[in-house]
């Protein structure tokens, strides 16, 4: 009995190995992209569901999870667009830091409303030289699933990271870009005023919990 299952297991392993070896490299990467998103969703849900964590610990875990999964410098450059080049290196660094804070606080708040939803990935398609789009849907207790697309990029020496999330045709990066450009103009096109507005927003988000 034991012998037979061992044989079966070996056979499975060999078949799997052969299958993987035979596939072009792209197919394996598509699975990587899909697994990356599935893994991220699971870790985020685990963090929310872990009742042993204190509030500060949970926030810390969220921060680590998001900073490692989102390509914040890439998103920040896209969001700031032409103002990025006009900014001094110090202003750029400050913007990155504040943008990271806003992203983390926003997502931590969204996960506070977590209500047993699950993410189901459906597949990944190639998007340019080093990019992937992972199709997924958020499964809820009630109501139809919500379609979500994740745009991923791989840097020279970095793992896959998220550069955009598209929910029902609405891109988060594009929405942010339009939002930040308007905030920039409202502040007389001054980067320092924008940074002040961002600090203000961070205080508001922290106060609202």
């Amino acid at each position: 009995m034991l012998r037979r299952s061992f044989l079966q297991a070996s056979a499975c392993l060999i078949v799997t190995a052969a299958g993987t070896a035979g596939l072009p490299h792209a197919a394996a990467a598509a699975e990587d992209a899909q697994a990356f998103i599935q893994g991220l969703a699971q870790r985020a849900i685990d963090t929310v569901a872990d009742k042993r964590l204190g509030e500060t610990e949970r926030d810390e875990q969220f921060r680590r999870l998001f900073v490692s999964s989102f390509d914040i410098p890439e998103i920040a450059r896209f969001v700031l667009a032409r103002y990025w080049r006009a900014a001094t290196p110090e202003q750029q660094q400050e913007f990155l830091k504040l943008f990271e804070d806003i992203t983390v606080l926003t997502w931590a708040r969204r996960f506070k409303d977590y209500n047993g939803e699950n993410l189901q990935t459906l597949g990944a398609t190639k998007d340019g030289e080093r990019g992937w789009v992972v199709d997924s849907q958020i499964m809820r207790n009630q109501g139809p699933p919500i379609p979500v697309q994740w745009r991923l990029r791989q840097g020279d020496n970095s793992p896959l990271r998220i550069v955009d999330i598209v929910v029902e045709g609405v891109s988060m990066a594009i929405t942010h870009r339009s939002d930040y450009a308007a905030a920039m103009q409202a502040n007389g096109g001054q980067i320092d005023s924008l940074l002040a507005a961002m600090r203000n927003k961070i205080e508001q988000l922290k106060a609202a919990g």
């Binding site: 708040r109 929405t175 870009r177 339009s178 939002d179 308007a182 905030a183 924008l194 927003k201 508001q204």
Partner: peptide, 13 residues
């Protein structure tokens, strides 16, 4: 809650 400029965020959405 999360936008810097609610008006333009809504416009874009």
């Amino acid at each position: 809650r999360t936008s810097l400029d609610y008006y333009s965020a809504m416009r874009s959405l």
